[in-house]
Design a protein around this nucleic acid. Sequence first.
DNA 1: TTCGGTGCAAAGGGTTTGCAACCTG
DNA 2: CAGGTTGCAAACCCTTTGCACCGAA
Lengths: 141, 141
Amino acid sequence: MRTLNLEEYKIHLQDNGYKCTPQRLEILSFFVHYPSRFISAKLVIKHFQEAAGNPSLDTVYRNLFLFRDLGLMESIFREGENLFYLKSNPTAHYHLFICTECLSVTELDICPMNIMEVSLPNYQIHHHKFEVYGVCPICKS
Amino acid sequence: MRTLNLEEYKIHLQDNGYKCTPQRLEILSFFVHYPSRFISAKLVIKHFQEAAGNPSLDTVYRNLFLFRDLGLMESIFREGENLFYLKSNPTAHYHLFICTECLSVTELDICPMNIMEVSLPNYQIHHHKFEVYGVCPICKS
DNA sequence: TTCGGTGCAAAGGGTTTGCAACCTG
DNA sequence: CAGGTTGCAAACCCTTTGCACCGAA
């Protein structure tokens, strides 16, 4: 499980008609340095407030949701705030193990929909979610 | 899929050491009248504000989360607000089909964890979520 | 040069909390 | 009668929005 490098995210943005602003690269760069982990919007903002002159609070929000909508990130809502995680591959659809201690993420390449017979005649299925929560090996020890 | 009647919820509350206040029964009663459906806290509050003299806003919130913690309800977070749904059986763990049009719920009695080999050696699995989203037969037609 | 993107400041809106009064068990 | 529960009002806090300026392509 390899995270893309910044250059690859730049291309992804441009291919979708979005500009590569320094602020966007700053945010992506922050996530690249903490790979495979859910990070709260609050924490990202705190980081940039300390090193002033940088993406502002609202720019962080706007772009985190943009990145999510572009498929670069996944988000979950936990205890009153949004958490974001930089996917290792923008085009893949993963199911995740999420450590409730450190918020680290393990991508599961199995999908219940491929295995189970979800028999729902006359239902139109659009998307689904499968998330496993627990404690990762590092936090366990 | 049968929803419990009010009497059964009363017993469940008392068995867990909680009091059966009129407010709690009002809230449960509201959900019993709209079975198998996610309802927003906002909607519940609106209902009681119109028929004044009734659970107040904060009592509604306090009890919805209490009911959830007792296993009587499930909650999801969608578009900035919490939605609650009264389970047909407090002790069962369901996976759900959720209609994005009408928020109706279909309980799936299959569980991916029983079928798949989620092979995560040294991981401690606590709980998991499997939710399927789409359009139910009624909204489809 | 253009129009998407940013920063500021203020508002929005769902949710939570402290505290005194209330009422179930 | 006691301790859990409620209602009020105010606070909280994450998030969103309008608008003028800026800067990537």
